[in-house]
Deep mutational scan, measured.
Amino acid sequence: KKIKIDLKKGPEGLGFTVVTRDSSIHGPGPIFVKNILPKGAAIKDGRLQSGDRILEVNGRDVTGRTQEELVAMLRSTKQGETASLVIAR
């Protein structure tokens, strides 16, 4: 099931960490939400869960991207702006 979640970045950030699983010589594996932090946009919104697979960030497919690339995409969202995620659960 795909779910679109918009998180408005506040002073505590987006409020979640990510982890890559099953990376191989063929490229990075899928990226999942690792933890929801006690402060930040994710816990206020309440929909994002540990174990959700991140498919898109701000309309860009993240398949084949590294964890570092995904984190850079999320960090490029400025405070007060919205990060738009599509996740699979």
Rank of each mutant, 00 (worst) to 15 (best):
I3L: 04
L85E: 02
V86H: 08
I3S: 03
L55R: 04
I31V: 05
I54H: 00
T63H: 05
D22F: 04
T20Y: 05
T17V: 05
L48W: 00
Q79T: 06
A88C: 11
N35K: 08
E69M: 10
L7K: 05
A83D: 11
R89P: 14
I43R: 04
V71C: 10
T77L: 10
G64F: 09
K4S: 13
G40K: 01
L7V: 07
L37D: 09
I36Q: 01
R65Y: 10
T17F: 03
L48G: 00
L7A: 03
R47W: 05
A41H: 03
T66Y: 04
R89D: 11
M73K: 04
R53I: 14
T77G: 10
I36T: 03
Q49V: 13
R21M: 14
A72N: 06
V18D: 01
S23V: 05
N58I: 01
K44P: 02
K9R: 15
K39A: 13
K8I: 08
A88N: 15
L14S: 01
Q67R: 07
T77P: 08
R53M: 12
N58C: 12
G29R: 07
V57C: 11
G80C: 09
L7H: 00
Q67Y: 14
V19G: 15
G59V: 02
K34G: 09
T77C: 09
D61P: 10
G51F: 11
I54C: 02
E68G: 08
I25M: 12
K78D: 08
A72L: 06
P38L: 10
I25F: 06
K9S: 15
I31S: 13
L70N: 02
E68Y: 04
T82F: 09
S84Q: 09
V18E: 01
A72S: 12
G15Q: 00
R65E: 06
D6P: 08
D6H: 13
G13H: 03
L37F: 07
K78Y: 06
S23R: 08
A42E: 01
G40L: 02
I43S: 05
G51M: 13
G15W: 00
D52G: 00
G59D: 03
L55N: 03
T63Q: 07
V19A: 14
A42T: 02
K4M: 11
K8N: 12
P38Y: 15
D45T: 03
I54K: 00
F32M: 11
A42R: 01
I87M: 10
A41F: 03
P28A: 13
I31W: 13
S24F: 08
A41I: 09
V19F: 15
I87T: 05
E68R: 04
D52Q: 01
D6F: 10
I87Y: 01
E81T: 14
G27R: 08
S76A: 07
D45R: 01
E68V: 03
Q79R: 08
K1F: 09
I25L: 09
S76M: 09
K4Y: 14
I3Y: 12
R53G: 10
H26E: 15
R75G: 10
R65G: 06
K34A: 12
L74K: 03
G51Q: 06
P28F: 12
I25G: 09
R47F: 04
R89W: 00
A41D: 12
N35T: 03
D22N: 06
D6W: 13
G13N: 04
P28M: 12
K2P: 02
G29K: 05
G27W: 10
V57M: 14
K1P: 15
K78A: 08
A72H: 13
T77I: 10
R60H: 10
T63N: 09
V19W: 13
T66D: 09
K44I: 15
E81Q: 15
V18C: 15
I43W: 04
T66F: 05
E56T: 13
F16I: 02
T82H: 14
L55M: 12
V62I: 08
L70A: 04
L74W: 08
I3T: 03
S24L: 08
K9T: 15
R75D: 15
A83I: 07
K9W: 14
T77R: 09
L85I: 08
G46Q: 09
V86E: 11
Q79S: 11
K1I: 15
Q79K: 11
I43E: 07
G51N: 13
V71K: 15
K2D: 14
F32C: 11
K2M: 06
A83K: 12
P30M: 05
D22M: 15
G80L: 05
A83Y: 12
K9C: 15
S50A: 13
D45S: 12
L85R: 02
K78F: 06
E81L: 09
K39D: 13
R89A: 04
G40W: 01
E69W: 06
P30R: 09
G10R: 07
V62H: 07
D22W: 03
T66H: 08
V33Y: 01
K34P: 03
S84A: 11
R47V: 10
G46W: 02
L48V: 03
T17R: 13
V33I: 12
T20N: 10
D6K: 11
S76H: 14
V33F: 01
A41W: 04
N35H: 13
G59E: 13
M73A: 06
L85M: 10
R65K: 10
P11A: 00
D22T: 07
S84C: 12
G10C: 15
A88T: 13
G51R: 05
V62A: 07
G10Y: 08
F32V: 09
T17M: 06
L70E: 02
T82A: 14
A41K: 03
F32H: 09
V18W: 11
K2E: 07
N58Y: 03
S23L: 08
D6C: 14
R60S: 06
I5P: 00
S76Q: 14
I3V: 04
K2L: 02
E68W: 03
G51H: 07
A83H: 15
E68F: 02
N35V: 09
D45Q: 07
V62T: 08
T20R: 09
D52E: 01
L37M: 06
L14F: 13
S50H: 15
A42K: 01
L55W: 04
T66L: 05
V57A: 05
D45G: 07
K8V: 05
